[in-house]
Write a protein that binds this DNA or RNA. Structure first.
Lengths: 210, 210
DNA sequence: TTTATTTCTGAACAATGTTCATTGAACTAT
DNA sequence: ATAGTTCAATGAACATTGTTCAGAAATAAA
């Protein structure tokens, strides 16, 4: 005995191989072109084999989502070190839009594709019992506004979670339009994000503007 | 002769019938469930017949988009009568989000589905040689900011088109998240839209806020 | 009525996700 | 070592998709 652990390892390895292949195809050809047969060809197995490791194409998509949330969170995390909440908000906005523009396929998948995937991925709580990466990314924003309150930049009776939702959706709006209709908006993304952020900050605390 | 006109009419009639059936299916089951065979069954023709009236499923989608832009514009148009630019902006925001929440399938199709459809539909200029409904909807927003400038609510050196893009994308962000992950945002759409709009207005002209 | 044209059909094709009886290799027990 | 068992892997098969096209049916022209 004792070989069962190797089995487990091999299983996990092929599982990861499938996910890697799926990710590459999604990045290269878009999620709609992600085909079970293409994955099979990439990992050099028969199509049916994939079903021994994943329940369905949907489940693969969900796992890709989870991975995507993680990557996004890792892009945002470094901003946590910025002390000034307003500067931090600007940095988050910048990092977030960078992520979306640099990884359009991933961004589409985690926020713009079938709700099925996103909801399943968001509600899956990882091993460490903490919230998933998606939730933690939102928390980053909530903390910005909480810190602004602590620094008296913001009235203490405004709802931080609410502001976080508004800021995030605004950011997402810019990105999703940029990704869906490249060239339709005449203003570059960076500028849109910058003006949006500054206007938002000015709107929050008019007396402190600039 | 003279029957050629009737032919034209009959052709246009069946074409419209196909679009109507397609729209109903899209509204009922979502765009992904819009199947050529389902359309054929709905209009009681063989699947192949549809191809005598439309080049492909994509072309049907594009026509549905055009129709969708028209409907959206008609929802926004009444706001043009509101004299005060700020009130008008609030009314546009409200009408826009109402449209999206009331017609989720249409909204998804015209702004969140394949860029192919949207781009083709947006670049198609209608018979009257004016801009399409999509463009005219954006113009509505641009005018708001132009009017604000005229009323000295806004510095004359800000770019109205830019502000229109930012406001629209922010609005779209709220809607697209609400449509894709219903229940994920804890705040009701109306409130998000309201706070976003007020914050935006406050950010534009801090001295005039409220 | 006969001929020509147009409209429509429905079988067929390739590609999709998914299933499952069969294979064959690796592991276990004797 | 041999026999038995397990289990990963196969690849043919199924249903469903968009799309095509030779031929049937209906309509118009002569």
């Amino acid at each position: 005995m004792g070989s069962s652990e190797r089995k487990e390892r091999q299983k996990a390895q092929l599982q990861q191989q499938i996910l890697d292949a799926a990710k590459e195809i999604t990045i290269r050809d878009g999620f709609a072109a992600l085909t079970m047969r293409k994955i099979a060809q990439a990992i050099e197995y028969a199509p049916g084999t994939i079903y021994l490791y994943f329940e369905s194409r949907d489940e693969i998509a969900i796992q890709l989502c989870r991975q995507g949330y993680q990557e996004l969170f890792e892009c945002l995390q470094p901003t946590m070190n910025i002390a000034d909440p307003r500067d931090r908000l600007r940095a988050i906005a910048s990092a977030y839009s960078d992520f979306g523009l640099t990884n359009p396929a991933t961004y589409r998948l985690i926020f713009m594709e079938d709700p099925k995937f996103t909801n399943a991925a968001l509600s899956q709580v990882p091993i460490d019992r903490e919230d998933g990466a998606g939730m933690r990314s939102i928390q980053l924003l909530v903390k910005v506004f909480d810190d602004m309150k602590a620094d008296r930049m913001l009235s203490s009776d405004v709802n931080s979670a609410r502001l976080a939702e508004i800021f995030w959706t605004s950011l997402h709006g810019i990105l999703s339009i940029k990704l869906t209709f490249p060239g339709f908006l005449t203003t570059p993304s960076e500028e849109l994000v910058k003006i949006m952020t500054d206007t938002f900050l000015a709107g929050l605390s008019p007396d402190l503007s600039l």
